[in-house]
Design a protein around this nucleic acid. Structure first.
Lengths: 346, 346
DNA sequence: AATTTTCTGAGGCACGCACCTCATTTATTA
DNA sequence: TAATAAATGAGGTGCGTGCCTCAGAAAATT
């Protein structure tokens, strides 16, 4: 005989189907003693609710919202593409995702947007935003309203209950450090570190990890202070120009944020020594091309499709109060060289 | 209004539910013209069968069989663990997996085992075995019997219809080559390549990829002919001992197959220069430990959990004649350093 | 003890689909 | 044209669960 059903449960607990239903769906009007009898029976016979059947009966689908920064870069493009793809393939698993966008560095706007989401319209939320007290509180209010939240790409360690879907950025920084240390061989010189802003927690963590490894394995190299572009092309160009001019030998460059288009353009324009090792984050059309042409030596990335699907699975698991397979939800820090680069739409 | 149902389909096609059912489930007794009318309506209204409901109604579950080699190594252990894990987490998606084992290098036994599987007991099969004519034919017979097959880990390019779940081994070899070339810095000397057997197609492909990159990027190094251990500890020890003795400077070692326990033991015993770069395949407890202790420099691996889940998804898609999300099924060639090593049970 | 309140059981309908039977219509062949 | 075969429609039941109603049973209150 197959998996136990609600009928088996009712029999095992010595109650009726109606009572089983009341307990399973946390409806009122059941004595505590009875609730416990049923719960014991659940464990005894190993009952697990058939979610497919439950969803069918309920006619419900999962409405998930992804809150993303509202600026444009290739990484966000990838995320949106993956979300649309997921939306298509999950439509028949009763799951629909929608995207809302907020200024990345305006915590008030983010918080305000999150506050507009009610449990009537939304079943779960994935938030990609910088960690600030406002955002943290808005997340807390969401969960208080019964809406599960996951932190997406950017961790929210201060927000309890917000499961983090993304990579360990310190480890990512260490990985880049190790590659930089080894790829530079025995070269002497400077290493430039460039990012959009060190405000972002991600950048700080990556830098720390990077420095730790560089200090240990490549003391021959001098790692310069982080240069911030603030996303400004002119500023980026200027920074790069003066850096490349002043440093007689740039052995390596670490592009720490994921919007490296402008930066690579500037580097291409001003030129670096042939053997300069350039490592950056996120596999996008741009970094893909740079790898192929040998302009970049390695890219550290996370699988965007996996990020999206994992967020969806975790949110659904929270909504249905079911468990997840931990190993499936762990996001890998992927090292991409020209040789192991997956095909374009992967 | 939500997704179209069979009722909507019937209306759109101008036929009854019974006919829709006959078409959807490929039952006999429908005129070709009518079949086409229904299929056109399916496209027109974008009907997609609700698999959850269908499975519920059908009371069916997917019985999948994994045919694995019958010897023991850590990689196979990982696969079995992942299979058990998947079995648990898929139980409520009406999917059960079982494992049967056959001597890796006995194509007749493999074929004989595959021939015993009938469509009454089994809905899909994943085959991990060396590519031989016997195996290829047995796979063809399976699909002829209506049982979908995927090639698992080991490709079966000669078996049409057997979708391959695994990595491109030539690319994996190239990746190792690139890492070897860069990690060895400017060192001169020999590179040893060790495997269990060059009979296996995987080993041949890896070697080709490796050589191509080494010739191009590290002509300073001399890559020695492949040494075969045949899985024999004594032979392994002897090979290693003489190699390390004869080669004055071993700059690198490439452990090409996934059963590197004995080999690493031998290497540890006879010792290598401090700066010898050792790279191998598959992240197992053993390679994990070697990475942590600095005995190995990099491990090229494929996510075993992903391999298993992907196989299951692909088989189920074949059974239900549905599509898969290509990007989700692409198995990555993962580069693992100490710094980006996932936790133990990942 | 009588009354109110709180539980509990029995049963039905629905979800989208599979699968079955039987009657009826349409096409094919003699 | 009649006889036969093939195609189609109508309608029912069940999968496991959610959700609702109503009638009784048990417990708590007066």
């Amino acid at each position: 005989m197959g998996k136990p059903t609600t009928k088996d449960l009712a029999k095992a607990a010595g109650v009726s189907l109606a009572t089983v239903d009341r307990v399973l769906n946390a409806r009122a009007g059941v004595r505590q003693a009875t609730v416990e009898r049923v719960q014991k029976a659940i464990k005894d016979i190993g009952f697990v609710r058939d979610i497919a059947a439950a969803n069918l009966a309920r006619g419900k689908d999962y409405r998930l919202v992804f809150l993303l920064p509202d600026h444009d870069d290739e990484f966000l493009d990838l995320i949106q593409t993956a979300l649309h793809e997921a939306n298509d393939s999950m439509a028949h698993e009763r799951t629909s995702t929608s995207i809302i966008r907020a200024p990345a560095n305006d915590p008030h706007k983010v918080a305000a947007l999150l506050d507009t989401l009610s449990a009537e319209q939304v079943d779960g939320v994935a938030v990609m935003a910088s960690e600030t007290p406002h955002v943290r509180d808005a997340i807390a209010r969401l969960t208080a309203r019964g809406i599960p939240v996951v932190a997406f790409v950017s961790n929210q360690p201060s927000a309890e209950n917000a499961y983090f879907v993304g990579i360990n950025n310190a480890a990512a920084g260490r990985t880049v450090g190790q590659l930089m240390a080894r790829f530079t061989g025995a070269a002497q010189g400077d290493v430039l570190v460039i990012t959009e802003s060190m405000q972002a927690r991600d950048s700080q963590e990556r830098r720390l990890g990077f420095d730790a490894i560089m200090a240990r394995y490549a003391p021959r190299l001098h790692v310069r202070p982080t240069m911030e572009t603030y996303g400004d092309p002119a500023r980026t160009a200027k920074i790069i120009a003066t850096s490349l001019h002043n440093q007689p030998h740039v052995a390596g460059v670490y592009l720490m944020n994921h919007n490296i288009k402008k930066t690579m353009q500037a580097i291409g324009k001003f030129g670096t020594p042939e053997d300069t090792v350039i490592i950056g984050h996120e596999l996008t059309p741009r970094t893909r091309a740079c790898l192929l042409m040998g302009e970049m030596d390695a890219v550290i990335t996370q699988d965007v499709g996996h990020l999206v699907r994992s967020s969806i699975r975790v949110l659904k698991a929270k909504i249905t109060q079911l468990g997840t397979v931990a190993s499936q939800e762990r996001i890998r820090i992927e090292i991409i060289l020209r040789e192991n680069m997956p095909e374009a739409n992967g």
